[in-house]
Amino acid sequence: MTYPSPAIVDTIFAPVYRWRLWITILRISIQERIIYRGDFMLGTLMRFLPIITQIFLWGAVFSALPTGNGSEGRIVGYSYHDMVAYYLLTMLSRAFSSMPGLASGITREIREGTIKRFIVQPIGLLEYLFFYRLAHKLVYYSVAIVPFAVVFYLCRGFFQETPHGLVWATYIASLVLAFLLGFFLEATLGLLGFWFLEVSSFLFIYMLLSFFFSGHMFPIDMLPEPMATVVKLIPLQYLAYFPAAVFLGKVQGAALVTGLLVQAGWVIVFAFLAQVALRRGLRHYSGFGG
């Protein structure tokens, strides 16, 4: 009687091991995060405070619009209600796409040399960070759903029509893709740390650009040409603007599908770039001492 060699067993069960590894990272990270839930809830609720100023600011802007030019009380197709709803929706988009500390965390690991453990341990850096981040987000949503629900309920009047099934499906898909895009984009930026000792100025520029051009500050349709076209070509809009625009019915028909495909395309591009950067970076990297 012959037994299969251990090597073969490993090969057969490799996907199972991988899966168990992922679940373990996820579980440990969730437990770690749950400790801070109280601070979370208050912090999240407070992050909605600027929306109060936005509601009144846009109220004032819309009240002074010149009348009688055919586009009654609208700015680039947004009514006052749309505008406020837009801001609330981008907060939701950002809840998916923002990755606080991801890029700076990676550069710190590179600079301080703790990245070595990922060379030795049978875990990839990216997969570890991915599940760690996923755990954070899951805990965050389970807690933040309370303040989000409160605010959206209070502001329900700003949402005039609820989208139908297909739009809902696209919206949710675009949020998931926003999470993936945010992760791989920031991971790629962080991995630049293999070549540059200090990437904080890069990160700052990225943060600045993404705040302005992702649509977090205002709907990017408001930008004048040719800026609007350029901004729609770069991936930043998929972090905040695109999901919100889908929900508000600003993207319709075929554009819905192409938009989603382009978003998925950017996810693949940055997932690939992150892999390449990691592989090349590790070859470039030299660790000394322990």
Partner: peptide, 15 residues
């Protein structure tokens, strides 16, 4: 930049 953009669309803040 944001404020300039706003005044691109409205003559004043509030009527």
């Amino acid at each position: 930049g944001f404020y300039i953009l706003i005044f691109h669309y409205t003559p004043s803040l509030g009527r």
